[in-house]
Amino acid sequence: MAESAAAPPTHLQLFLGMQQVALSSFGGGLSAWSERIVVEERQWMNAEEFITGLTVARLFPGPNQINMAVYIGSRFHGLSGALAALSGMLLLPFSLLLLLGLAYYDLHETMAVDRVLAGVITASAGMALSMGFKIAGAYRRDPVAMLLAGASFLAMSVFHVRLVPLVLVAGPLAMAWYWPKQKQ
């Protein structure tokens, strides 16, 4: 793997770079902005290293973009680098969200706010519904995967099984089924 051209970023640079990613991505496209800023502008990583990072970020538990910031930070300065990158990514958006939250809890019983939100939640419900369909294509040709997905869906939606016991029971079974057959 080729090393990137630029010198490794300091903690402050990690913080500011991730803050730039967070601010640029208003309205979505966070991972595209992340690549543009981290790979093209600041050249902390090459494209291949960045894609490896995305793979790890998606594989492990936690929000993808937050995991990506943690990955980038920890590659350069371990835990402290991860915290610097994470703070940069979260500080401004989270502060803004908390202000919005205070406004919401103060105003949500106001007629006008209530009516607008009654509309907005129908759109966000549609967005939530699309999450499953977005990744379903990858599993269409695998009957065992569809069976696992269907059983997990029924367990939660019909039988009200909670997430933690579901994952603790179905997870090991699924891992056993998909255990690589031959040592590579």
Binding site: I135, A145, M146, S152, S157, W177, W179
Partner: peptide
């Protein structure tokens, strides 16, 4: 490998339930 391939379909089912 097993974690990635095994947990993927379970995640899919959960996302439909969440939606």
């Amino acid at each position: 490998v097993a974690f990635e391939r095994g947990l993927g379909p379970i995640t899919l089912g959960i996302l439909f339930a969440v939606g």
